[in-house]
């Protein structure tokens, strides 16, 4: 297993900071621009990356990220092209933790073990399968671990204690904690992150939690960290900037860098 997540969290802790983790869909709006976007996110101060492989049927995603999947698949990009892009990023940025967020059929289509192997070769640290709950995840965990990939599971806001414990024990690297129910989307109704949930996860010996869904403004990041999360993941707010500037790449990159700097600043103690 790579140590990139634990190294990130310990150095952030030493600096009294939380993690800011942007999410984008690989290949959105096209492969070349996507690679520039990812490099921009890192250069602007992202602590880690959460990246989606585009899928035809993204059931856990709201309209903004659905549209990103559609934009990416317009160009008929392949899983191999996504892994090749990741390998180029990894070559230039050896330290940053890179997580993949995928749908199950992309993982199993050509053999689960082969998928994790290709991910590992591309320098990926973790894989979260959006439509694989813990109950089905037991089949995937050993295959991920065998390739040195950290399996990540989602802790929902209304989960039972047993589920939270299971998620804490099965997830390595970090735990994806949901701020609310529903699908992804920056719709301004982020619930106060439940400090209780985070306590339960920590007590179960879980990796640090990253809060996701609806993280769109600096105060969302501050609230997440104040509640005990290790940081926050922002997806739809980032992807919306891409969509708004689809045909103006320079303005897009400038706006993305500005967004990351603002959100990253919110992770730093005042």
């Amino acid at each position: 297993m790579s140590q990139r997540y634990s190294q990130m969290f310990s150095s952030l802790k030493a600096r009294q900071e939380g993690a800011f983790v942007p999410f984008v869909t690989i290949g959105d709006p096209d492969l070349a621009t996507s690679e520039r976007i990812i490099r921009t996110l890192i250069d602007a101060g992202a602590d880690a990356l959460e990246l989606g492989l585009p899928f035809s049927d993204p059931v856990a995603d709201g309209p903004v990220i659905q549209a990103a999947n559609i934009r990416a698949l317009r160009h008929h990009i392949t899983t191999q092209q996504c892994f090749d892009l990741l390998a180029r990023i990894r070559a230039d940025y050896p330290e940053i933790p890179i997580g993949l967020l995928v749908y199950c059929n992309l993982v199993v289509a050509n053999g689960t073990s082969a998928f994790y192997q290709r991910a590992a070769q591309a320098g990926v640290d973790s894989v979260l399968i959006a439509d694989v709950p813990l109950r089905e995840g037991v089949r995937f965990i050993p295959e991920a671990q065998a390739q040195g990939i950290a399996p990540i599971f989602i802790a929902p806001p209304d989960a039972s204690e047993a589920t939270l414990k299971g998620v804490a024990q099965a997830s390595e690297g970090y735990i994806y904690l949901l701020s609310r129910s529903g699908v992804t989307g920056a719709n301004d109704d982020v619930n106060a992150p439940a400090a209780e949930l985070i306590k339960t996860l920590n007590n179960a010996g879980g990796a640090p939690a990253l809060l996701g869904f609806g993280i769109a403004r600096p105060e969302h990041v501050q609230a997440a960290i104040a509640a005990g999360a290790g940081g926050a993941i922002s997806g739809s707010a980032v992807v919306r900037i891409i969509a708004e500037h689809e045909h103006k790449p320079e303005a897009m990159l400038t706006a993305l860098a500005e967004f990351v700097r603002t959100m990253k600043a919110a992770t730093q103690a005042k």
Partner: peptide
């Protein structure tokens, strides 16, 4: 099986 987001299991 039950290949859905964790949140739907309950």
């Amino acid at each position: 099986g039950q290949f859905v987001p964790e949140i739907l299991l309950p």
